[in-house]
Structures are given as structure tokens and as C-alpha cells.
Amino acid sequence: MKRMQAVIAVIGLSMALATPAWCDEAAAPAEADAAPPATTISQDTYKIGVDDIVQVSVWRNPELGITVPVRPDGMISVPLVGDVLAGGRTPIQVASTIQKGLATYVRDPQVAVILTELRSHEYLSRVRVTGAVRQPISIPYRPGMTVLDAVLAAGGVTEFASANRSNLYRRNGDTTLPYPIKLDRILKRGDLSTNMNVAPGDVITIPERVL
């Protein structure tokens, strides 16, 4: 009897060792849906804004490193260098300026500027609806958002709106370009020919009728 129990124990152990890993995974409780990957901001192209937090590191000179917010004037204060313009520039450009400023004091300085908090990014990415709407608003941009989505989020137009004279304003380099929106046709006729996809930073303006 004892011999039979020993044989059964050995067989059970062998089966446990032979169980493939996928069986354990299948038996494990399902994890919650994985969160989508965080939106990444390119350090090469992202332009630093006011209130963004930047970390400046100098290789082999940790005492010169700082982590500071960008001031309202767009500047940051760096040890030995003083005020450096960060607003409107990329981290690589800021690092190059600091590196040149430190060259007087440090031999062959190697500087890295890293964004640790993108506080200004939220505002740069918003879409704004103004004029003859129920509630002028500033809303976060979402991929796929259209003019109609933004206007409905503002509660729709008022009875005084001249909806077909609406415009979407969009920055293009150093200029702002208007795009006519026939909002009355969108709302009343379902004509979506001017129901443009919006982009971060767009402003939609609905004027009032001239009495």
C-alpha cells in the first residue's frame, strides 16, 4: 500500500512539472485591460512652454543640475549661466545654449535638458469655441473631434447666432488662417461638407447676426 502511494505521488509530481506554462497563465485571473501607452512627446520637436518643469543635468557636475518650472517670461535660471530662454524652444536648443554658457567655467560641459512635467501642453492642445454659443468653452482636444462635436459641447448656438458665418481659426507657422464653416447647414440640414476635423489649438468662432 505504501509503495502504491509513493508511485502515485511520483506520478503527480511528474505531471505538475510537465504542465506547460500557458496552463498557469490561463488559470491565472485575467488582468484589467492594459492602459494605452502614454502619449510621448519628442524631445527634438516639442517646444517648451510656461510652467513646464525642466531638469538640467551637467555630466560630472551634479552641483550644477537643477529642476525648475519655466517662468512666465519663458526663462529659467541656471547656475553660473544665469537666465536662459526656454519658452518656445526645444530641450535640445536649450541644452546647447546652456552648454555654451558653461564652457567658460567647465571644461567640455555635457548638458542634458529633460522635460519632467508638461504643464503647458494641456493648454496648447485645447480647442476653444467662442461667440454666439450657449456656453463658450475650452475643451481638451481628442483625436477625431470635429467642429460639430466642439459646438455641441458648447451647448449649441444661440438664437442670435449667424451660424453660416462661423470660422475655424488655425495657426500655420507664424500666421493664423480662417476656414469658413457653414454651421447652420451642418446643424439643420446635416450637410457635413464643412464639418472639419479640428486640431489642437483651433478656435471656432460663431458671430451674432447683425440686427
Results as ranks from 00 to 15, higher is better:
2 K>C: 06
3 R>L: 13
3 R>V: 14
5 Q>R: 11
7 V>Y: 10
8 I>S: 12
14 S>A: 15
14 S>P: 00
16 A>T: 12
18 A>S: 14
21 A>W: 05
22 W>E: 13
23 C>F: 13
25 E>M: 12
27 A>I: 06
28 A>N: 08
29 P>V: 11
31 E>A: 15
35 A>D: 09
37 P>K: 11
39 T>W: 00
40 T>H: 08
41 I>R: 10
41 I>K: 03
46 Y>N: 05
50 V>S: 04
52 D>V: 03
55 Q>R: 15
56 V>G: 06
57 S>D: 13
57 S>P: 01
59 W>F: 15
62 P>A: 05
62 P>C: 04
65 G>R: 03
65 G>I: 02
65 G>S: 14
66 I>R: 09
68 V>C: 01
71 R>H: 05
74 G>C: 04
74 G>R: 06
77 S>L: 08
83 D>S: 13
84 V>I: 14
88 G>C: 08
91 P>N: 08
92 I>L: 14
93 Q>F: 02
93 Q>A: 15
94 V>T: 12
95 A>K: 11
96 S>T: 15
97 T>V: 14
98 I>G: 09
99 Q>K: 15
100 K>I: 13
105 Y>I: 02
106 V>E: 04
109 P>G: 10
110 Q>H: 13
112 A>M: 13
112 A>L: 13
114 I>T: 14
115 L>W: 01
115 L>H: 00
116 T>C: 04
118 L>K: 01
118 L>P: 00
119 R>N: 13
120 S>Y: 02
120 S>Q: 02
123 Y>L: 12
125 S>E: 13
126 R>I: 00
126 R>D: 11
127 V>F: 05
133 V>G: 10
133 V>N: 10
134 R>P: 01
134 R>N: 15
137 I>N: 12
137 I>A: 12
138 S>R: 11
141 Y>E: 11
141 Y>W: 13
144 G>A: 07
144 G>L: 06
146 T>N: 02
147 V>A: 04
155 G>L: 07
156 G>A: 08
157 V>N: 01
159 E>Y: 03
161 A>D: 04
161 A>W: 02
163 A>Y: 01
166 S>A: 15
172 N>W: 00
172 N>D: 14
174 D>M: 09
177 L>F: 01
178 P>I: 02
179 Y>K: 10
179 Y>C: 03
180 P>R: 09
180 P>V: 06
181 I>Y: 01
181 I>W: 02
184 D>S: 11
187 L>W: 02
187 L>K: 05
189 R>F: 07
189 R>K: 14
190 G>V: 07
190 G>F: 02
190 G>H: 03
190 G>P: 06
191 D>H: 03
192 L>V: 11
193 S>H: 07
197 N>W: 00
197 N>G: 09
198 V>D: 03
201 G>R: 07
201 G>M: 07
202 D>R: 06
203 V>G: 03
204 I>E: 06
207 P>S: 08
208 E>A: 12
209 R>W: 00
211 L>I: 11
